[in-house]
């Protein structure tokens, strides 16, 4: 997972409330064998609406998505986070997120920053013309117009995001303990610690 400290650039002023994961990535995209390439299916229905923000070339590859209350509700599909990542989104700003979605986003290195509706309204306005800046260390969202909003984040999640640690990465950081167990197993339970060379 890529470490994330600072996300700066254009922000997609989507703004809708109760965006469910079916809307983020419809079920027929789940038959894939990879986590990649799901960006094509992201917001498939919205993309069919005339004049939708995703069709605006100004926002192509934008790293920030601004949405309304309860973003990511519904199904637990991790494909929703994979789809956003594939679109280039590294940070979603909304008044609130579904628990499951924010957990999935976190596991995939996407920052979810919750801000009050007034701040969202202001950022939606700025996003139409100018870039937005999200800083994880100071937990702030700023604009070129001196706007400054702070957000809360669980310290453990912050640590993981800043260091690019996912659960696999965290366990890998315990590599020494795992190696120690393997060494002990080789001595005490060699029959479990290896398979016979004859099958190689």
């Amino acid at each position: 997972m890529e470490p994330i400290n600072h996300v700066a650039g254009r922000a997609i002023p989507f703004g809708r409330k109760n965006v469910d994961t079916d809307a983020i990535i419809p079920a027929h995209w789940l038959k894939t064998i990879t986590r990649e390439g799901l960006g094509k299916g992201a917001f498939e229905a919205v993309k069919k609406e005339p004049g939708n923000v995703f069709a605006d070339p100004d926002y192509a590859g934008a790293p920030i998505l601004i949405a309304g209350d309860n973003f990511g509700c519904g199904s637990s599909r991790e494909h929703a986070a994979w789809a956003l990542l594939d679109m280039g989104v590294k940070c979603v700003i909304a008044p609130s997120f579904s628990d499951i979605f924010s957990g999935n986003a976190f596991k995939n290195g996407i920052l979810t920053a919750a801000l009050p509706q007034e701040a969202i309204d202001r950022l939606m306005e700025v996003a139409k013309t100018d870039p937005i800046d999200v800083d994880l260390e100071t937990q702030t969202v700023t604009t070129p117009f001196q706007d400054r909003f702070t957000f809360d984040i669980d310290p453990f999640r912050k640590h993981c995001l800043e260091n690019g640690l996912d659960e696999v990465g965290l366990t890998m950081a315990q590599g020494d303990a795992i190696s120690a167990h393997e060494a002990k197993a080789r001595a005490q339970m060699p029959f479990l610690a290896r398979t016979p060379a004859t099958v190689d």
């Binding site: 366990t171 890998m172 315990q174 795992i178 393997e182």
Partner: peptide
């Protein structure tokens, strides 16, 4: 994936 990477 966790098991493949860490055997734990």
């Amino acid at each position: 994936e966790h098991v493949l990477a860490t055997q734990t």
